[in-house]
């Protein structure tokens, strides 16, 4: 490869994995440039955690090849291990040790000794807001603190590639926001982040690129904006008090009616001008909708449209922004 092209942090070709007769990964291709946040998005059981386990050398793939910073996963797992850090879905801290001892343990395993180890540990305790709890056993930590300690332990070795497997699952909104900021800071410091999540908002806010994994294959890949462009645009949802109003509105405006909920779905953007126009037309026809809501395409729509019929039963989902 040309010298001035930076090596990708992760490059995966045709990765396959099955457990007995169940195929978990069915030919996954990925390439993640160094210094970016990549998010692997998918419903439960899509194969996200399996992907992380394979890429972090915990389990072997059945087929395909994967390289981390050019090191082949199968041929040189130790070189891969030296470059990565993993914070899994389940807490990987030693509950019997204090926060400080956990970090010192990691420092020891990274062959940091004496003052250097203490400096690194103190810095991380400070950075992750754990200095006050440094001398308490990790078993006594709250969920958010454990997660922060977990990530701090991952960072002791200053990994270039950090796997975060559903790092905010089970956290309260505040801790989630803290975690997001930490992840942004990591990338600002030059690391590459491989993030799996089932929260679309999380991928939307953090990731440079998103891949949607469903039943073992990547069904879509791109930036959040690119993915959103792939589903039909937004619409305005009108609700009426009775069927007559619904019928005449449908006649005037077109769109899709749902007689059961007396709703009319009018395709189009939620801009002020088009909205005013829509209301004007209803006014002229003397139809008063009970309720009006504007729906912009969200990653949720993409997700539901791409990951099969689970939940995608034609009902518009309310965008939360």
């Amino acid at each position: 490869m040309p010298r001035n092209t930076p090596r990708p942090a992760v490059s995966v070709e045709g990765l396959r994995k099955s457990y007995r007769d169940q195929t978990v990964l069915d030919g996954v291709d990925l390439e993640i440039p160094a210094g970016t946040i990549f998010s692997l998005l998918g419903p439960n059981g899509a194969g996200k955690t399996t992907m992380v386990k394979i890429l972090s050398t915990l389990i072997r793939a059945d087929g395909g090849r994967a390289r981390i910073f050019g090191h082949d996963l199968a041929a040189d797992p130790d070189a891969v291990r030296a470059a990565i850090g993993v914070t899994g879905q389940y807490s990987a801290v030693d509950g019997l040790l204090t926060g400080q001892e956990n970090l010192m343990l990691m420092a020891g395993l990274h062959r940091l000794r004496g003052a250097a180890a203490r400096r690194r540990t103190a810095g991380l305790l400070e950075r992750f807001d754990l200095a006050d709890a440094a001398k308490k056993p990790a078993a006594a930590y709250s969920g958010g603190m454990r997660r922060r300690l977990d990530l701090a332990m991952t960072l002791v070795g200053e990994p270039r590639l950090i796997f975060l497997d559903e790092p905010t699952t089970g956290l309260d909104p505040r801790s989630r926001r803290d975690m997001w900021q930490i992840i942004r800071d990591l990338v600002a410091d030059g690391a590459t982040v491989f993030l799996t999540t089932q929260y679309l908002e999380e991928a939307d806010r953090l990731a440079d690129r998103i891949a949607v994994l469903d039943r073992g294959t990547i069904v879509a890949e791109g930036t959040a904006a690119e993915l959103k462009r792939r589903v039909p645009g937004g619409h305005v949802l009108l609700r009426f008090a009775e069927a007559g109003a619904l019928a005449s509105a449908a006649e005037k405006l077109g769109g899709e009616t749902d007689p059961e909920s007396l709703a009319l779905k009018v395709p189009g953007g939620g801009g002020v001008a088009s909205l005013r126009d829509l209301l004007d037309r209803l006014d002229t026809a003397s139809i008063a909708p009970e309720e009006l809501s504007v729906h912009t395409p969200a990653l949720d729509d993409v997700f539901l449209a791409l990951t099969g019929n689970r939940g995608a039963n034609g009902h518009a989902r309310k965008a939360n922004r």
Binding site: S56, D78, R81, A82, S91, G95, L109
Partner: peptide, 13 residues
């Protein structure tokens, strides 16, 4: 049963 051993397995030790 703890995640810590999974962590050890992903480290260059």
């Amino acid at each position: 049963a703890e995640g810590i051993v999974a962590r050890f397995r992903t480290m260059d030790i």
